[in-house]
Design a protein around this nucleic acid. Sequence first.
DNA 1: GAGTGCGTATAAG
DNA 2: CTTATACGCACTC
Length: 182
Amino acid sequence: MDTIVYGFADSPFGPIIVARNRKGVCDLQFLGFDRHRVIHELGTRWGVYTPTTQNDDMAQQVERLMFETKITLSDPISAELPLCPRGTEFQLKVWEAVRSIPFGTTATYQDIAKLVGKPRAVRNVATAIGENPIAVLIPCHRVIHKDGTLGENHWGTNIKKQLLDWEKQQREAIISQNNSKQ
DNA sequence: GAGTGCGTATAAG
DNA sequence: CTTATACGCACTC
């Protein structure tokens, strides 16, 4: 049986809960206003009988990697932070495709549908994205409507917009930094 | 098998 | 701008 280590941290976008098993980060949620509901969801996803231990240091370390370390445009987070989400074949495929969207850029739901080889299953892709268990690291906030509007988000359109704005700002900062070096 | 859904396109008010 | 209709299909019940 899998054992889970979870912990709490403060991100620039509000408090988060981070959980990992021995393979990698398996769950990451914004706590939002309803902390208990989110923790309950974690329980239903992994089973109330899954042995857990609390380790806030681990969570804070993950948070620092996500938001404080120098992020390059190619998104090095993946290499340092292996992910281990649980889901159906289809969901895992969709989440993998979402991870290929570069930092600071966006893709449409249709783009992701094509990437997973199911160009007509756009709504199903959207549903799978909505069930993303690992916020930010599986960057579902980078998936937007074809007409440029943001679309819905599990943690609120506000979080989605904030994350996109932040990434865009970071991206531009890195680009201008690189230009001034030459 | 029926109902649902983080979409998209088109038509209409 | 908003509502309506149709399409699409993985998933849940």
